[in-house]
Simulated assay, not measured.
Amino acid sequence: MTAEQTGLRIQEALDALAGSGAESAGEQLVRDLMDFYGEGLARIVPALPPPALERMLDDPAVAGLLLLHDLHPEDVTARIDRALAALPERVEPIGFDPGTGVLRLRRTASGCGCAEGDVEAVLACHAPEVTAVELERAPKLLQIGTRPPQAAEVR
């Protein structure tokens, strides 16, 4: 389950408690559990050998937890690069505007192409600061053959 899916399930549970008088108790429970898990993760992360931590940062669930608790060791640029490396098609960042959350990307190779929604889904766990993706389409390449087409014989 992704961090986003977990967040939605928690919100649904809290919404179900709304108006029952248990809503504030449910919210406090979530805060207390978050604090508990955050404190534990804050002790684990520095104790991990760098190669082990590096491997774990590729896992979307782990990356999401570390971000949630402000424990992720990489800056947003490194996390964007990590997320993009996981895509089946290569894209390169053109620019990221932290004020708007817009990430501009360019395809680096032709292929079947991934949709902006696919890119956004990969970025959601690694770089939630990215709120929108603008994906430049790859330019059409001119196909050059090995020889010119045969002209029709003139008689």
Rank of each mutant, 00 (worst) to 15 (best):
I94N: 15
A115D: 11
G64T: 00
V91G: 01
F96D: 04
G99N: 14
V91P: 02
H69L: 10
P60N: 08
V102F: 03
V62R: 06
D75E: 10
A85P: 06
R79D: 00
V76S: 02
R107I: 06
D81K: 06
A115K: 11
R107N: 07
A109D: 12
T100Y: 15
V62I: 13
R90G: 13
L71T: 03
A78M: 14
G117D: 12
P60H: 08
D97A: 13
E74Y: 07
D58P: 02
R106C: 08
D118K: 09
G95Q: 14
R82G: 08
R90I: 15
D58K: 09
L67H: 08
T108Q: 12
R79H: 06
D59N: 11
R82Y: 06
L87W: 13
P60V: 03
E89S: 14
L66V: 02
L103H: 04
G113E: 07
R106H: 07
L68H: 01
D118F: 08
V76Y: 01
A109K: 05
H69N: 06
A83Q: 01
P88Y: 15
C112N: 15
D70S: 12
L65C: 12
A86M: 13
A115Q: 12
I80Q: 00
A78K: 11
C114L: 14
D118N: 14
C114N: 05
G111F: 10
V119W: 00
E120F: 07
L68N: 02
A63Y: 02
S110D: 14
D97S: 10
G101S: 08
L105Y: 07
G111K: 10
L68R: 11
D58V: 05
D81T: 13
A86P: 04
A63K: 02
A109Y: 07
C114T: 04
T77Q: 15
L84E: 04
D58C: 09
L84R: 06
L105F: 09
I80Y: 00
V102E: 01
E120Y: 09
R107W: 08
P88D: 08
G99V: 10
T108H: 11
L66T: 01
G64D: 03
A78T: 15
G113M: 06
A86G: 10
D70W: 11
T77R: 14
R104G: 05
D58E: 13
V91I: 15
